[in-house]
Simulated assay, not measured.
Amino acid sequence: MTSTTSTAEPAQVASPNRKHKDHVAKRYPLWFLIPGGLIYLIFFVVPTLASFYFAFTRWTLFESEWIGLQNFTLFLSEPGLIGSLWNTLVYGFVTSGAKVVLGMLLAVVLSMPLIARGYLRSVTFFPVLLSAVGVGLTFQVLLDPFNGIVNKVWTAITGGDGPQWLTNPDIALLSVAGIDVWKGLGIATLIYIAGIAAIPNEYFEAARVDGASSWQVFRSIILPLSFPATSTVILLSLIGGLRSFDLIWTTTGGGPGFSSDVIASVIYKQYQAGYYGLSTAGNVILFVVVTAIVYPLNRWLNSKETDL
């Protein structure tokens, strides 16, 4: 009787210890999220909440005054706001669509067994590493209508004067969009290459056995099975396009006139003029616009992924 009791007691004591160790083991990986969570809280959550507050104030570095919705009313009454909003949407959707199409095509080519494939992939990705400000200033020189090398080559080939890429109101915004596509195409291509590499090789082998053409392989295998990569490229490029500022500002400054003004450049002009509360309200409006476009699009893309 005594021996039975003595062996039962250690078991009763050991069970809570095991539960405690299991609880600690489950929580242990979560501790590694704390540094990243603190950085996210300090550099994103707190500034975002602060910007929502200061959007309702007239503020300087030393004081602020609550004025309610006046900043939003004044910003929405800007004469060029509708034009800048339209330019923002055009710029965002044009750059996003071009990166999706060209990124997919380049990824398909660079996934083939080519000579110097690694070098070609590096060249494609290289513009991503460059500063947007440096790229903007460089293309401002290259696209100069009189002394730029692009128009000199155009004249040598066609014999006529080249377009005024950055000074013609009709094409200035699209010219900057083209520069943006050149700079950001490497990211889209890289994502697509990863998406194509994740497709099981059995699908391609079965297609070869069935005698499928390259177009049939692309349409029936690569295009549908790389849809997660497509949704990622769409969201990233669209968010970047709708928020774009530095490339536009360094190439055209929003001009000529207001032809290439986007919401971000209008915000910056208000900030330059010292209207800090007004520019903060503009940032909040831009945040709402981007969220209103991207969030439902993200939900729709996720629903399409689950249907595959």
Rank of each mutant, 00 (worst) to 15 (best):
R121S: 13
S122I: 11
S122C: 11
S122M: 14
V123F: 08
V123L: 12
T124W: 07
F125C: 02
F125W: 10
F126W: 08
F126S: 05
P127E: 13
P127V: 11
V128C: 03
V128S: 05
L130A: 13
S131G: 06
S131V: 04
S131C: 07
S131A: 08
A132W: 07
A132D: 00
V133F: 07
V133R: 15
V133H: 06
G134M: 15
V135F: 02
V135M: 11
V135R: 00
V135C: 04
V135G: 00
G136H: 05
G136Q: 11
L137Y: 13
T138Q: 12
F139E: 09
F139I: 10
Q140E: 07
Q140F: 06
V141H: 00
L143D: 09
L143T: 08
D144C: 03
F146P: 00
F146K: 01
N147Q: 10
I149H: 01
I149R: 00
N151W: 06
N151T: 06
K152F: 04
V153D: 09
V153N: 09
V153T: 14
W154Q: 09
W154S: 09
T155C: 00
G159K: 09
G159P: 10
G160C: 02
G160P: 01
D161N: 12
P163M: 04
P163A: 08
Q164T: 08
Q164E: 03
W165C: 02
W165G: 07
L166M: 05
T167Q: 14
T167K: 03
N168E: 13
P169R: 09
P169V: 03
D170Q: 15
D170M: 14
I171F: 03
I171Y: 08
A172V: 07
L173H: 02
L173S: 02
L173N: 12
L173T: 14
L173M: 12
L173F: 10
L174R: 13
S175N: 05
S175W: 02
V176T: 00
V176Q: 01
A177W: 04
G178I: 06
G178T: 03
G178N: 01
